[in-house]
Design a binder for these strands. Structure first.
Lengths: 198, 198
DNA sequence: CAGGTCATGTAAAGCGTTACATGATTTT
DNA sequence: AAAATCATGTAACGCTTTACATGACCTG
């Protein structure tokens, strides 16, 4: 079984210094968003919420400290650009930052993937409750993904004229979500049929 | 080693006011797994790794303290059942635990859902790297889900004669994963075609 | 008798959200 | 004048993983 307790004495890839101590999760979105131009922490958060949020979120409490760290590492450069009396710090990628971003994008390390789906968990244990439990759960799952789909479709025009990366990602996301909704619908119908057969 | 000298947290930190302070995330899997009968913390971890892990994980560092907390809340009951000189504590649901589990299963609060997919993020930013980046990324995504599918199929016999909840969940999971793989394949082929057209 | 599995647990660190606190500017 | 938005940031808390530590039992 390929379970967790596999403490292989893995040869440390970071031993030879002079190279990136690996980007932290939030650093990846930040650097990525900065390829679009100079942004403030606030801007980055808005962008994330409008684009990657459904598969990669970030909060202020994560973004601001991380920007500081990235600046200390020389991967971004911040410049105070106040608007009137309003504080404002615009960040942009440095050459090292661009390199780090490309290194990450081109690395073939197993990309991180994590799903936490309470609906599936409820379905799994649904035998411990009444027979409508499974149906309600699947219905809730479908509803959530339908909302998600609507949201994705609503930003499609925005991505339309843009670069291929976001366009592709959106198209793939829409496709995946449609597939999920279909599966949920089918499961739901089958459950209802099963229930009525009794 | 008998872990008695350890500073047990206050026996009654929870108010005994007849209202559930909502199950913590890990508590949900634990209570659910205990519907299958008496289990040790170790057993629960094995079960999670073999069944729900792909959409709901749990680690020892979470399970053991949570079992203590659940016992303090009166939702589970632990009994020492040593095998020879080997320490062993089997837990089972109490009536209150069963009630809490049902309450959770039947609650219609928005179920938690969170996805963190580095592959999608890479695809989103793939314009900042070479044109093979997007292809490699989608290929890696497909590969991961193919592995996941194989794993799901490998446990299908195990679930076959069992209760409907796990069976349904597995079937849905397999369907979803197949859909994802298909989308990835199509995206991949299209990217390759696009690249060759130049 | 070595190596794997069973079984317990703790400590530290990382990642992340939430809530708070502050104040300026813009919109209604 | 109120409300929303822009913009910064911190502190507290919660969840989870990782690494560690211990030891008994089982199998080859």
């Amino acid at each position: 079984m390929a379970a967790e307790p596999a403490p292989l004495p893995e040869p440390n890839p970071e031993l030879c210094d002079g190279h990136d101590p690996e980007l932290s999760p939030t650093a990846r979105v930040i650097l990525g968003m900065l390829t679009l131009g100079k942004r403030t922490g606030y801007d980055i958060k808005q962008l994330v919420d409008k684009s990657t949020r459904l598969f990669w979120a970030a909060s202020y409490g994560q973004i601001y400290p991380e920007l500081r760290r990235l600046e200390a590492q020389g991967l971004v450069r911040g410049e105070a650009v106040p608007t009137g009396g309003r504080a404002r710090i615009e960040f942009e990628l440095t050459a090292a930052g661009e390199r780090a971003l490309r290194d990450w994008l081109e690395s073939d390390l197993e990309p991180f993937y994590e799903l936490r789906d309470e609906g599936m968990l409820k379905l799994f244990f649904s035998d411990a409750a009444g027979p409508e439990c499974a149906i309600a759960t699947v219905r809730a799952m479908r509803a959530r993904h339908e909302r998600k789909l609507a949201q994705l479709q609503s930003i499609q025009e925005m991505a339309d004229g843009g670069p291929p990366g976001p366009r592709l990602t959106l198209a793939l996301g829409i496709g995946l979500t449609e597939g999920i909704i279909n599966r949920c619908s089918r499961t739901e119908l089958r459950l209802i049929a099963d229930q009525e057969r009794e």
